[in-house]
Amino acid sequence: MSNPVESLYNIRLLDELAEKKSIIHNVHPLMKVLTTGAYLLVTVSFNKYQLSNMLPLVFYPVIVMSLADIPAIPIFKRVLPALPLITGIGLFNLLYDKSPVLVLPWITIPGGWVSFLSILIKGFLTILAALILIATTGMTKIALALRIMRIPGVFIIQLLLTYRYIAVLLEEAGRIVRAYSLRSAGEKGIKFRDWGPLTGHLLIRSIERAQRVYRSMCCRGFAGEYHTGREKGINTGDILYFAGWSISFLIIRYFNIPAMIGWLMMGVRR
């Protein structure tokens, strides 16, 4: 995400997905936030060797994405850039953890491999869960959820303003960088000499914009407080959504479903 224009498209894509209509989109944002939280907690609570136990967790993204009509490929593409770092840290487990964990008739797999894979899977699932939340909810409704959670209005309005002006400033930054690169023959980035002025100009323009925004807020009676409209009520269906998923997560957490399936398939006699 190191190109202003690309990031803008990224935000737009997620915004567009959030505008779709589906059962999932209709669920109250607070319940979706809570469900995501429960999912993340359960996912990371598996220890590093519980590779197969955590696999049923993939049902959550699969089901939600299918119900919400979220295309898999563009979302997966957005998960990938976050993985190298996790991979980097995880790779060390291969070096340091050689205790045998998984024993197959033809090969013995050391713990490092299992924990490495489990870190990767956790990474994939947790990032996916965050993207699914935003792609089915949208920033405005997340702010609503935060408000119901009694997060102070100052923080919420400032979060929304940041979000709102990211689009504007990314465009501005994109224009500045384009204008710069047009006049700097073949340079890939920005030369040291120009770091201050280039970013500084963008900053001063931002500060001036903030002042104009403030004025226009004042003209419409802003006095330091942010008022939202009526909060959408939480109905039984919303609560059931949260409860249903939470129970499923707990079942996945406390019962090794893949082991049961495996046992059903081939049987292990002791």
């Binding site: 990031s7 400032q158 940041t162 002006y165 930054a173 970013t199 903030a210 925004v213 403030y214």
Partner: peptide, 29 residues
């Protein structure tokens, strides 16, 4: 922040947040 009662700061915070976000997308050689 609320005690300061400088409401002008709220849009400034918002826009500067967006600024940091956008500026982080610029590659400096």
């Amino acid at each position: 922040v609320q005690n300061e009662l400088d409401e002008q700061k709220i849009p400034l915070m918002g826009v500067l947040g967006a600024f940091v976000f956008a500026a982080q997308m610029i590659n400096f050689t």
